[in-house]
Each structure stands twice: as C-alpha cells, then as structure tokens.
C-alpha cells in the first residue's frame, strides 16, 4: 500500500510540473511580429483596422469596380504602399511573403489571403524616395504607437452621430444630404 501511495504522489507532482510548464509556455507565446508601417498613423485606429479591415476591403471593392468610386478614404493600394518593407538591396518585398505585414498575422491565425493573386503585392516601381526599414522599430502586437488618423477624425466630425466611421460612412453621407 505504501508503494502505491508514493506512486500516486509522484504522479501528482509530475502532473503539477506538467501543468506549470504548459501554462508558462502558453504565457510566453510571442504572437505575430508585425513590421512597422510608414508614417505615424494608419487610416484608422489599430484596433478598428485589426477587426474590420476585411469588411472595409470587401465593401469597397464593389464600389470601386462597379460604381467607379475611387476617392474613398481606404484602399488596398495604400495598405501596400505604407506597409511594404524593403530588403538589403532596397527592393520592395511582397507584402504576402512570410513575415511581412499581411502574411505574419494571416499565417498566425491560419486564414488564407488571395488578394495578391491579382493585386500588386509591392508598390509600383516609380516610388520616389524609398525609406530604409528600421529593424529596431519592429512593431509588437499592441501597436500602441499608432495614433488615430487626423483625416479620419475630421471626417468623423462631419457625421451626424457617433458611429463606427468606416462601415457606415455611405449611409451617413446620404443622411447628411437628406437632412439639409
């Protein structure tokens, strides 16, 4: 009996060690490392973009292709322009390549992107002054240094009510006109 009891104690200790190890490895999960974009701010707040960028893109593609509306505040071309990284030879790296802005998160959450089967994954080569990437300024997941976009804030102020700006801007533009 005493043998059995000590065996149970060993089992318990092993289980405890296993749990601690498992928990500590989970807590140390680094998450995707997202390269920093150009400039000080994105077109909208980081949290909003993280949750809603796909809706913005899908919503706007029909407006652009079918209705020819090309002056909206969001565009896939601008995503690429700001977030593309340059290699040692100052050449733009495809944004859907491993470790790059789009691919790092999408690989982490295992969501395939097919945007760049058709859309350009690097800016057009006539970019005037390419910025050398600053490796020290790699952005962590929180992205806290991204400030809200002034242009978008100004746009928000023209809206009649406080609503998530991007998804409802059409409706509200129409509402504004109607109320005049």
């Amino acid at each position: 009996m005493s043998f059995g009891s000590s065996s149970r104690t060993v089992q318990g200790v092993l289980l405890l060690i296993g749990l601690i190890l498992g928990w500590s490895s989970m807590a140390g999960e680094p998450g995707p490392v997202i390269p920093k974009g150009k400039g000080e701010q994105c077109v909208a707040e980081t949290d909003f973009m993280r949750r809603n960028h796909m809706d913005l893109i899908v919503h706007q593609r029909d407006d652009t292709v079918i209705r020819g509306i090309r002056d909206e505040p969001f565009s896939l071309v601008e995503c690429v322009d700001c977030h593309v990284q340059l290699d040692e030879d100052n050449q733009a790296v495809r944004i859907d390549e491993e470790g790059q802005f789009c691919a790092s998160c999408h690989a982490y959450v295992a969501v395939k992107i097919d945007c760049f089967g058709c859309h350009a994954a690097v800016p057009d080569p006539v970019v005037p002054d390419p910025v050398v990437p600053d490796v020290a300024q790699q952005d962590s997941v929180d992205g806290s240094h991204w400030l809200p976009n002034k242009q978008l804030l100004a746009f928000k102020q023209t809206l009649p009510t406080a609503v998530p700006p991007a998804l409802s801007h059409h409706k509200n533009e129409a509402d504004t006109v109607r109320s005049e």
Binding site: D63, R67, G68, I69, D71, H170, E173, A174, T176, V177, R178, E180
Partner: peptide, 11 residues
C-alpha cells in the same frame, strides 16, 4: 434627394 446622393458618392 437621390440626385444629391449620387453626386455625394462621385461614382
């Protein structure tokens, strides 16, 4: 109203 909407969207 509908005309105003069209011009507002610039499509």
């Amino acid at each position: 109203i509908s005309r105003a909407k069209v011009t507002a969207l610039k499509g």
